[in-house]
Amino acid sequence: MNLDIRTEEKEDYNLLHVSGEVDAYTASQLRESLLPLTEKEGASVIVDLSNVDYIDSTGLGIFIGALKSSNHYNGTLRLVGLNARVKRLFSITGLDEVMDIEEEEEAQ
């Protein structure tokens, strides 16, 4: 499966658009794009996961690494647009309570 990552630089934060599947094969690609963004003092990063339909435990590890790095640099990390399956993974692992997570917005 492929993973597409696009970084959008906003005025005071970086927005990462991720689409595809984050698994053992694509996780390193995500780490290379995401981790450096969190390694600046006070950096604010938002990851848009609305086009991600599956994340496995290796993928989850990348977000944990990014969270630790972000905390270390006093930054913020926010995940948005999680579908039900992805949300369940963050909730089972207890990460929803230590991470800033926003579910997919319902069509209005």
């Binding site: 944990i64 089972i92 692992t93 207890g94 990460l95 309570e97 230590v98």
Partner: peptide
């Protein structure tokens, strides 16, 4: 943070989720 298991109740012949919330 572990995948929930199941608990089978024989008297009711039913399964329920066996989940213990906690951080990985």
């Amino acid at each position: 943070g572990h995948e929930p298991g199941f608990y089978y109740n024989k008297a009711e012949d039913s399964f329920e989720e066996l989940y213990a919330k906690g951080l990985v």
